[in-house]
Design a protein around this nucleic acid. Structure first.
Length: 670
DNA sequence: TAATGTCCTG
DNA sequence: CAGGACATTA
């Protein structure tokens, strides 16, 4: 059984896109100890970018957990003593004031470049550690030298000489060490500057805006919150880095203090014009061999944090500015891989995920608030995101697998996209989810989230093509879990799996595009049989749940339809004049009722409402009217007769509906 | 008993 | 629009 850290390494070796990542979790076993925590913070790095935010508490967490072995320091050491804090602040002021404005691919630091920087930093770190060790050895020698067997005078002379020598030597070495340190700092700052280049001025703007409104971070925080695991005792005790990075950012004035008081944290704060890095080392401590190690670790840690922040930031920026860009940019995808550095967290939170779960996936990607025109993009994304797209012939649904299995499940993704890790998924999903913020997000679809990701990752066809794939292509796509026009559907067995996974919605497989199509279909058939549905949703793999969902949709459509009919019929009934009634009972295309119906079933108004539907609606309207007029509406079952009538008025559906995807209106399009 | 539909609620 | 309760039907 491999430990979380093992997995951590596995994953790193599998995916780290940057050389620097390879160098981070090195062979030092103690570094493993913080991997769970640090990893868990990785997807949430951005909050760390804010002063008094999670970084402190995160550091605090590590400290208290003894994650830095041997680095437990007294809590009452004041922050002022924390190594390097002030110096870094000063040192950074000048160098960090560069304008972070240029951002984007052109100016973005080359990963290789970073790798070099990291490599040299690491070298320096190792050097300093080695020196520290040597120094300690010398000191140890000195300490042991008082052997009784040595003659006094010899000893004195030698001792004096040695002392002087060793003192000077130590002095020199300290100075060298300090120089090395300065150099290291410089490298760090350089790195940080590059970081700033990457997310540029926007970080400043965002920060300002976020601090004013608290919106920016909240999004992330929400995301973090989604991940937060209430079952985790660490969280309860406030030690969880998750909790830290999620909640506290919003409570800067509140709880932050509670952490800063005791903080020996690894603080990393990036201010607009001042970058400084604080290490969790008390000044002087690092001068010992152990301190050297600690420093090395702290450094390593900080580097990891910085890079992770950048990654997180970049991914965010890309997604926020242009969600579609995510697919075409190497950075988000690759860096997202690096975000998935937290197997332990996944494992730890798995139980909770099943219940509380990640709202990473849209529950049912139906959006009735946003106009279709707007939501086209959403739909497309959702179709991508739709878990059901991935019937996944080979591996079982991740949801049913224990956490470890999930991880093993991952490598089975297409080799050209070996990134199918939940966190990537998490990142991407959330990015998408956020861009689809108007869509209801469900918490109980963890299982889908994995598959989901897969569709994002491996089957991200050009969005505009969705819905217009030719059938052959569609079939193939369906086999792969993806279809034109939106999502495929899980097969029957899968639905059961969903249920098995616990409190999972029965309906989860149809895409918004399918919904749209269903609404248009309603223009022709109010009571479609399941065979009709199968005919007109060829891209849907039907199972009981999907069928039920479709039936339910039509039930809802009818409900709305009848409610409107009754409402307008009653309205007409109230109007006294026969002529007025007559007018009210007409369903001209300029009437309110027509407008309402059109709005409901044809929101984007890109489909010509068939005349037949207008007629049927008029029939329904009159039926309701006459029933009301004659007082039949007193009978609790009075509507049934009307339903019966209406159900006979279904008309043939145009062949265009037989194609997968949303039907195009030849009338309008042509 | 499963499938289907309606009604009501959120 | 989904979910649930309930009724009806085959």
């Amino acid at each position: 059984m491999d430990s979380p850290s093992d997995r951590f390494h596995q994953q790193l070796s599998q995916m780290c896109p940057f050389e620097l990542y390879r160098s981070l979790p090195d062979s030092n076993p103690s570094s493993h100890r913080f991997s769970p925590g640090s990893l868990s913070s990785h997807p949430l790095f951005s909050p760390l970018m804010h002063p008094n935010s999670a970084s402190q508490r995160w550091g605090s967490f590590r400290q208290r957990q003894g994650l830095f072995s041997g680095l437990l320091v007294d809590d009452d050491v004041s922050e002022e003593d924390v190594f390097g804090k002030r110096e870094f602040a000063v040192g950074a002021t000048a160098s960090s004031q560069r304008c972070p404005g240029e951002r984007g691919q052109g100016s973005a630091p080359d990963p290789g470049d970073w790798g070099q920087d990291f490599a040299s930093v690491k070298r320096l770190r190792m050097d300093s550690a080695a020196r520290s060790e040597e120094e300690t050895r010398r000191e140890g020698k000195r300490g042991r030298k008082s052997t009784p067997s040595v003659r006094m005078d010899e000893r004195k002379v030698a001792e004096q000489g040695n002392r002087r020598e060793s003192r000077e030597g130590r002095k020199r070495q300290r100075q060298e060490l300090k120089l090395q340190l300065e150099e290291t700092r410089g490298k760090l700052l350089e790195l940080q500057r590059k970081v700033w280049k990457v997310y540029g001025g926007q970080a400043d703007d965002e920060k300002g805006a976020e601090e004013e409104q608290g919106n920016g971070p909240i999004n992330l925080d929400e995301v973090a919150e989604m991940f937060s695991d209430n079952d985790d005792p660490l969280i309860g005790s406030g030690f969880s880095p998750l909790r830290c990075s999620s909640k506290k950012t919003n409570e800067t004035s509140g709880n932050a203090g509670m952490f800063t008081e005791t903080s020996m944290d690894l603080d990393l704060e990036l201010n607009a014009d001042q970058v400084w890095l604080g290490c969790s080392l008390v000044r002087g401590e690092w001068e010992s061999a152990e301190g050297g190690q600690k420093f090395a670790q702290a450094l390593k840690q900080e580097l990891a944090n910085v890079v992770a922040q950048v990654i997180d930031r970049v991914v965010r920026l890309y997604a926020e500015t242009d969600p579609s860009a995510v697919t075409s940019t190497a950075i988000p995808q690759e860096t997202s891989m690096t975000l998935d550095l937290n197997p332990d967290r996944r494992q730890r939170t798995h139980a909770a995920e099943q219940v509380e779960a990640l709202p990473l996936v849209t529950k049912s990607p139906h959006d009735k608030r946003a106009p279709i025109a707007q939501s086209v993009h959403k739909d497309l994304l959702l179709s991508q995101a739709n878990p059901s797209l991935a019937p996944l012939p080979q591996p079982p649904l991740p949801a049913l697998l224990p956490p470890r299995s999930k991880e093993h499940f991952l490598p089975s993704y297409p080799p050209d996209n070996p990134v199918p890790l939940p966190l990537l998924h998490y990142t991407m999903q959330n990015l998408f989810a956020r861009s689809l913020s108007s869509l209801p997000l469900h918490k109980d679809c963890l299982s889908e989230s994995y598959m989901d990701f897969r569709s994002h990752n491996s089957a991200f066809p050009p969005l505009p093509l969705l819905g217009q794939l030719d059938p052959s292509q569609s079939d193939r796509a369906r086999e792969g879990g993806m279809r034109g026009g939106g999502a495929g559907v899980v097969d029957g067995g899968d639905a059961a799996l969903y249920l098995a996974a616990g409190s999972i919605s029965l309906y989860k497989s149809l895409s918004p595009c399918h919904l749209k199509k269903a609404k248009l279909l309603f223009f022709y058939t109010r009571y479609p049989s399941s065979s009709t549905l199968k005919t007109y949703f060829p891209d849907v793999k039907f199972n009981r749940c999907v069928t039920s969902q479709l039936i339910k949709w039509f039930s809802n459509f009818r409900e709305f339809f009848y409610i409107q009919m009754e409402r307008f019929a009653r309205q007409a009934a109230r109007e006294g004049l026969a002529s007025a009634r007559e007018r009210a009972l007409r369903l001209g295309r300029d009437t309110e009722l027509y407008r309402i119906l059109n709005m409901h079933y044809n929101k984007s108004n890109d489909y010509q409402v068939p005349e037949r539907f207008v007629e049927v609606s008029e029939v329904a309207l009159r039926e309701f009217f006459s029933a009301i007029q004659s007082g039949r509406d007193a009978d609790p079952c009075w509507k049934k007769a009307i339903y019966k009538i209406i159900c006979k008025l279904d008309s043939p559906v145009p062949d265009s509906f037989r194609l997968p995807g949303c039907p195009t209106d030849s009338y309008r399009m042509g």
